[in-house]
Simulated assay, not measured.
Amino acid sequence: MLRDPVFRAHSRFVEQVQFGTLNATLPTQPRGYAALANTTSFVQYVDWVLTHMEACLQRAQLKPPALARHLTMQCYLWDHVIGYSVYDIFLLNYLEHFPDKQVLVVYMEDLAAEPLRILEQVEAHIGVPHHQYNTTELAAAFNARGSYGWGRGSMLSDRKGSIEPSGVDQNATAVLEAVERLRRFFAPSVQRLFALADEGRITRAPQAWRARYGSAAFSKDAPPATPQNASAV
């Protein structure tokens, strides 16, 4: 289940700040990395992490191909907020070890728009009998911003559809610049997902993803695109 990478990163950041675990050390992180990246500002977090992650990726590319790939994955694994939104390299790792037909890729936007269709698709993929779902629950978002946990849900129609200034990030221009920097950072990864879908290896991404991350979105005549969080999950 893949979510728009910018919104997955932002949602994870908000969750970790709210839980007070943003600076929790991961085994994959260099010493001191999490503590230095700890902030309640999404704008500052994006700037700090991307600066270090891009430098890490540049160093990785200087190595022989097999080692470069391993080090590239390590660079992304340093950070569970932004790095985990880079989907292609890890998905390709699955596809190298499992037949394509055993891997089902679905998208949060599609789940939000047509929850029953996606659930039936998952049921068919794993070979379980169809379940009669509660229509009210199908229209709710669980573990959503402001409703973390599975004990209660909020209606999908009540969820906001954009990243807006909040908390310490009150400068709308700075927020938009952070979103745009993330969009450009994630674009190559998302475009590789498009290629896999065009080859018939995975499900096609929502059209909105192509509008945000496709090559046409980065032409000199295209305005900066602010992702809309259709899934709101």
Rank of each mutant, 00 (worst) to 15 (best):
Q61V: 11
N229R: 14
Q132G: 09
A197W: 03
S231H: 09
R8D: 04
F42A: 06
A124N: 14
L50W: 09
R59E: 13
L57I: 05
Q102L: 12
R145E: 08
A24D: 01
D110T: 12
F186D: 00
T72Q: 12
Y148F: 15
Y45V: 04
P224K: 13
S189R: 07
M53L: 14
I89K: 02
Y213K: 07
L156Y: 15
V168S: 08
E109V: 04
I163Y: 01
T21I: 13
T21G: 02
L92N: 14
R152P: 03
T226C: 05
A174Y: 10
R69G: 09
R204S: 15
D169G: 14
V105C: 06
N93Q: 14
Y107Q: 06
Q61R: 15
R3F: 03
S157I: 15
V105I: 10
V14F: 01
F7R: 02
A35F: 11
V17Q: 01
F186G: 00
H52N: 09
N171A: 09
H70A: 14
V128C: 11
Q102G: 02
E120A: 13
L36V: 00
L77M: 11
E120S: 09
Q61G: 06
L57S: 03
R183E: 03
V105Y: 12
D221T: 14
Y133A: 08
N229L: 10
A178R: 06
R212I: 12
S154W: 05
S85I: 13
I118V: 15
E114W: 09
R3V: 02
T203K: 06
I118F: 04
A113Q: 13
Q132K: 10
A140I: 13
R145C: 04
A24M: 01
P227I: 07
P224N: 10
P27E: 04
H125W: 08
N38E: 01
N38F: 00
Y87V: 07
P165I: 11
E120T: 08
A232E: 07
Q170W: 11
Q102E: 13
S166L: 07
L2E: 06
Y87R: 05
R12Q: 09
D100E: 14
E120L: 11
T203G: 13
T136Y: 09
P188E: 08
M1L: 12
L138N: 11
L176I: 04
Q58G: 03
A208M: 10
T28N: 02
E164Y: 15
I118P: 00
F186Q: 01
A37I: 00
E137K: 14
D221K: 07
A178N: 06
P206C: 02
L62Y: 02
L92G: 09
T28A: 08
H130L: 13
R152N: 12
A216R: 14
V86R: 07
L91Q: 10
D4F: 03
T136G: 05
I126K: 13
I163N: 04
D47C: 04
A141T: 08
A217C: 08
L116P: 00
E180A: 08
N143R: 11
V86A: 12
R31T: 05
P115A: 10
V6N: 01
E123Q: 12
F19I: 02
Q44R: 05
S162Q: 14
P129G: 05
